[in-house]
Amino acid sequence: MNISTASLASPAVLSLTEPEPKEIDALAFDYFLIELVNTLKDSSAVASKRNKQREDDMIAAGILAAPAPLPSLSVKKDSIRDSVASAKSAKALEEEEEAVKTRLESIGYQVGGHLAERLCRDRPRFSDTLDTVKFICKDFWVVVWNKQVDNLRTNHRGVYVLQDNLFKPLSRISSYNGSADALKRAKLYLAMPCGLLRGALARLGLQGTVSSDTTSLPQCSFQVKLPKGS
């Protein structure tokens, strides 16, 4: 070995540079998302029940003023099969769903950020915003959902619409009560993907909002709004 050009990068360094890729079954993520949504749904139902209980206790103890009585909302029993949910008013249900969505999104935000960091390792830096969004559409999408985005549109003013005609988390959702109900349920499963995208974009330096929209399963579109000038 020629010592005069003694190499800094020993095999030990190279093995740290190229860590062995770890692989998991692609379906694991599907199963995970299904379980995650349901678990968090239960968890946040318990949390909101506890909060309500605490509030009621405080009202009973006279610490907190009682809220103005709400106009009685008709309880929609027909479309909701869950026994937990059926007894609750529409407003409480909405609040609960919002809480689950927030949780799912923040989990997605973390995961998306770390994933973006990882995927960026072997690529050059991004030249502009469109380049970054394209990276999300191609590399990021392939890793998470095993395909590329089908359609990307932009108004060149910071709004990007990413459309996927067969979005994986939605591909197996159906309901006893017809497609309208399935669509309603599907919304919950889009919270984590939204968070994933937002987290990945944030880590790449683009702080924006991501909203999802689906009109017919399993098609889905994400609208990414980035602040002007980015």
Binding site: S4, V13, Q110
Partner: peptide, 27 residues
């Protein structure tokens, strides 16, 4: 005095970046 090759330095940087994201991903 030794010649420092850019390729070596890049390898070290890549290893460092790998270390960074691996640590960051700790839940």
């Amino acid at each position: 005095d030794a010649v420092v090759k850019d390729g070596d330095i890049i390898a070290i940087f890549k290893a460092l970046h790998t270390a960074y994201y691996q640590s960051l991903a700790n839940p």
